[in-house]
């Protein structure tokens, strides 16, 4: 699947099917620090992502 990351904006490829929780673990991201968006929808850590999915991982922590 295609995974879009922010700060800076970039795209990485992760093999599916896999749960959101596992994708975050693979990318070494804390669930508490990000949200996962597929299309226009937020998905929880349990969501199963397929190989053809395109998701965005949105950081929620700001430093200002």
């Amino acid at each position: 699947m295609k995974v879009m990351l922010n700060h800076p904006v970039r795209e990485v490829e992760v093999k599916g099917p896999r749960r959101v929780r596992e994708v975050l673990k693979e990318l070494n991201l804390l669930p508490e620090s990000v949200l996962v968006v597929r299309g226009d929808d937020l998905v929880t850590e349990e969501e199963l992502l397929r190989d053809e999915d395109r998701i965005e991982i949105r950081p929620v922590i700001s430093g200002g």
């Binding site: 700060h7 804390l30 508490e32 620090s33 922590i61 430093g63």
Partner: peptide, 22 residues
């Protein structure tokens, strides 16, 4: 705006937040 203020990079606050989230 998802982008951060460019001056915030490496700010102490981000480190404290990361530790608290761990």
């Amino acid at each position: 705006i998802v982008e951060e203020c460019p001056n915030a990079q490496g700010a102490k606050m981000l480190l404290y937040k990361d530790i608290l989230n761990r």
